Amino acid sequence: MRFCGRFLCNPCTWQEGGVRQLSFDALIPIFTVPILMVVASQSFTCTVIIFLLSPPLIYYFYRNFLRFIIRTKFFLMWTVTSVLTLLLVFEFSVVPLLEILPEENLVFVICVVGGLVCGYKTKQKACQVTQENSLLQGVELGEGDSEICNICKKCTSQKAFHCRLCQTCINEREYHCKWLDCCVGASNLRWYLTCLLFSAVAFIYGSNLTMTSVCHPFILIGTILLPDDCSDVYHQLDIAICFVSSIYSLLIGLVITFYLIYHFWLLYLGKTANERHLLNNENENNEGVLRNATKLFCCKL
């Protein structure tokens, strides 16, 4: 099976028209995400079980299979599938309930499109850096501003760090984001932060609109609604799917918000995530459960 879509081509050769075979690990999320949502929509118990068991199952699958793939597309395709699935559920199941104003839907769509565009630009900028670095072998930088990378043996900036997944040095590198399958650094940090901002608003706002449409809402302040009673959402499968999608969207939005705040904190400190990681390694012999979970579910430092 071969595809020519930009998302499924080699991330740094799609501009050249390169076509790549879609691997098995990239196909899994396309079927897994919708199936899990349908199963979770059967009852409240199923919802709890799916949301509790999914992270450890992904961890098990990653530790036993995905970590042997140098650059897996599993997490990127999970991102794409999740966004498209949640968007389709919202537009074709939530909006027809006629509980959402047109301007509210417009704001939501703008945030979704903004997140997708900024995410695409983040990945595109990372690919441009990889392509440019492949042409810089042997090129000398300004005196006192460069050094030789011990891994790729190329002349790089003193603030650059080599990414083994991208196989190049990234200036002011933060980390390799698995969900976008690219490195975040000086060239695309602004696009990445904008992507996080749009995405956080889209996921949390979409979750609120969905919950207040399928549950009995109450007025918090002015026209701001919050869900109150959701006890009858499992009586209809389509309503239950909407409710489960809102929970999934809320959880993703909260995680993205955490990383957005984390990056603003790093900007305030004037450091990168990679620099803090190296500093912590100097002060600690082990990394801890939280940092290992961060490596799995977001980034590779």
Rank of each mutant, 00 (worst) to 15 (best):
L269T: 07
L267M: 14
V184H: 09
L57R: 08
E147F: 09
I170F: 02
F74A: 08
G119I: 09
V38N: 05
S231E: 01
H216N: 11
P227Y: 02
T194K: 09
L106N: 15
L267F: 15
E132Q: 11
K300D: 03
Y248S: 15
L180F: 14
G5L: 11
V214S: 07
D228Y: 08
S207F: 05
V244A: 08
N10V: 01
L220W: 14
P96E: 00
F243L: 01
L36I: 12
I241K: 01
L260I: 02
P34N: 03
Y60E: 09
A202W: 07
F258R: 10
H176G: 06
L86Q: 05
I30F: 09
P96V: 03
V95G: 01
G222R: 11
V129G: 09
T72E: 09
C215E: 05
S41A: 14
D145P: 00
Y175C: 06
G114T: 06
P29N: 13
F68C: 13
S199D: 10
N133C: 10
L76S: 09
T130Q: 04
D229L: 08
S246K: 05
K300Y: 08
V184G: 09
E140L: 09
I49K: 10
L8F: 05
R20E: 05
M37T: 15
L88I: 11
D145I: 01
Y59K: 08
C149K: 12
F264G: 05
C182L: 04
L251F: 14
K300V: 15
G270R: 13
Y120C: 04
